[in-house]
Design a protein around this nucleic acid. Structure first.
Lengths: 158, 158
DNA sequence: GTCGCTGCAAAGTCTTTGCAGAGAG
DNA sequence: CTCTCTGCAAAGACTTTGCAGCGAC
């Protein structure tokens, strides 16, 4: 795997599990497991945010300047990962898709329109309800995003 | 307003109201009310679907072939309308943004990630729950948006 | 060795911008 | 009249594709 081989000793069990799942999938589909694909998975795993293809590309280039990974590879790999249900894409207001690991924990956001503060939350009733709705409408639910906008306590008191 | 003047006799009261609101807004912002803008509003109003800029452009060209409205005008007008909160946009990955009239009743969206089709829904349990959550977190709720992503029935059967 | 994956560059999409002229107020 | 809006075409931004060589298996 050349001089760029990555050392996984410090990775979490969860990540190793994910990697294993992925390798199994790869094998099943007669595909090949490359360093580039590994780095894309790893970067997504270590990121708290949804990443645009270009951000992903930059992050990887910064970490492995000598590898010179191509943006086309990032796009191609992301499509592949998405087809394999390893990553999910979302597009928020602005332009372009953003990607995240499908395996990650999910949460929603409540945003203060006065100070811009963002709080995360998960509500099981809503999560459940969303599955219901998707079902009722004949959809196989993959993901969702929800934002509540309001004024936080601090700003209300000003 | 030239030979292309539109006859509004058959328009609903609701649309006339909308148009009035919009003209007021236009005047307040020192902008000009043009036939192109009117046609874009009207087309959005008469459409049951969320329209991509290009679809909008085609619909208008089909109805008024001699007007020869430019795609750039559609983009520019939509941005303007969005800033004025007259229309709202939804973006969905590969297929770019889609627009709808903001004047509609509140609703959320479920989006097919395969074909890009968008279905609207309202769920009172979720609406209620959102207020609850905002309260619990000390927020005064102002607004929210929610999107469910999935695969629609048609695409599942492919 | 085979055949899929990669980087590069070129080609596609989709959207925005510059400009001169048309048209609303 | 003034000054914004428009159509056109060119430029930008974002993605995909063709190709020859590399590398996983």
């Amino acid at each position: 795997m050349s001089e760029f081989t990555v050392d996984f000793n410090d990775k979490t069990v969860a990540y190793k599990q994910l990697l294993n799942d992925f390798k199994t999938l790869i094998r099943k589909n007669n595909l090949k497991f490359t360093l580039q694909t590994e780095l894309i998975l790893e970067t997504l795993y270590n990121s708290d945010e949804h990443l645009a293809p270009e951000s992903l590309h930059h992050l990887i280039q910064d970490k492995f300047p000598d590898l010179n990974i191509g943006i086309a590879t990032v796009y191609r790999t992301l499509s592949l990962l998405e087809e394999s249900k390893m990553v999910a894409s979302l597009s928020f207001g602005a332009q372009g898709k953003k990607y995240e690991l499908e395996a990650k924990e999910h949460h929603d956001h409540i945003i203060c329109t006065a100070c811009g503060n963002i709080t995360e939350f998960v509500d099981m009733q809503i999560e459940e309800r969303q599955h219901h709705i998707a079902n009722d409408l004949g959809f196989k639910m993959l993901d969702h995003s929800m934002q509540i906008y309001g004024i936080c306590k601090t700003c209300q008191n000003k």
